[in-house]
Write a protein that binds this DNA or RNA. Structure first.
Lengths: 166, 166
DNA sequence: TAGATTTTATTCATTGATGAATTATTTTTT
DNA sequence: AAAAAATAATTCATCAATGAATAAAATCTA
């Protein structure tokens, strides 16, 4: 990868080569971690977005939420959230009920079975997370978190500057 | 996000909460950057994998490669590489020719039109890359690079320990 | 050298996610 | 209160990517 970027940089003198390299590295590492998580989840019949949605409900104080809320927290589009929750309902991990206050809405609630599933599944994932950060000192973890947070902040500004449709 | 992870941690005493937070942050930032890149490329009729493939050919010394090589450098599966290169061929950015040395193979070569396209497109993307790293000192960039590289290294070990099919 | 094995690229069926259009309901405006 | 606008969730058509199966050629092996 480094070699490729250096070759491009050689042809594009104005290119901020190191920055490009860094951004590629970020995309690559994030993506590889996500793939790895998918692989861990697959044997349990969930993909990453379904898992994330379930965990959001599991962690929510009253165990329920509206689809639009889940979209926000899980960064998913409504279309996909419909698919995700269909799937979770079919597996008996959540329920879908019409809201009484607002009849356009739907209330999604985690079931006891869903809670058990989450409590069983989460610890299975922890070792991989720890393995990923093997050899990192607390200071390094803190630094990585700080730098990524800073970067996300820049990203927010970038997105807001242009496409802010609000 | 932090709140959600803290809520889960409260229910899962054994959970390495900070590590999970850090890994989520990594996935999230990588993914958001990738989405942003997709948005920048869309008006030019390319998605990220097509762009990456084209740039690999652009940066290769002789401007050509076999599909299997491109798969490796662009981290794509052969199936998708067929689709990608079909698309690039249709747009006249690359050519596809049978190899004479090994008749199973196919030689993909960037065209002059493809080179022009790359030279025009790349500078359009640089400002965003720079914006992403606004406020980062050289030292911070170096540190972020070092930490991500370390993490990728852990990932490699993790993948190798288990699923190593070689 | 003949037959088995591995490699290379492709096609096909399926999964996951998205945008645009649709339906039902609520909120705002007049 | 009636009409218009906004909001919520869903369906439908489509795109991007994957794994499994296939076909063709090269390489290994006996």
């Amino acid at each position: 990868m480094r070699a490729g970027i250096e070759r491009v940089a050689a042809r594009m003198p104005s290119m901020p080569g190191n920055d490009v390299l860094l951004v590629r590295l970020l995309m690559m590492s994030g993506n590889t971690v996500a793939d790895e998580l998918e692989n861990l989840l697959r044997p349990h019949g969930l993909n990453e977005s379904e898992f994330r949605t379930l965990v959001i409900l599991f962690s929510s104080p009253n165990g329920s939420a509206f689809p639009s809320e889940l979209c926000q927290f899980a960064t998913q589009k409504p279309t996909n959230m419909t698919r995700i929750t269909n799937d979770l309902v079919e597996r008996g991990l959540i329920t879908r009920m019409p809201s009484e206050q607002d009849r356009r809405r739907v209330v999604l609630s985690i079931t006891e079975q869903g809670r058990q599933f989450a409590r069983r599944l989460l610890p299975i994932l922890f070792p991989s997370v720890s393995a990923l950060l093997t050899g990192f000192t607390d200071k390094e973890k803190g630094e990585l978190g700080r730098l990524l947070t800073k970067l996300v902040h820049n990203l927010d500004n970038l997105l807001e500057t242009r496409g802010a449709p609000t």
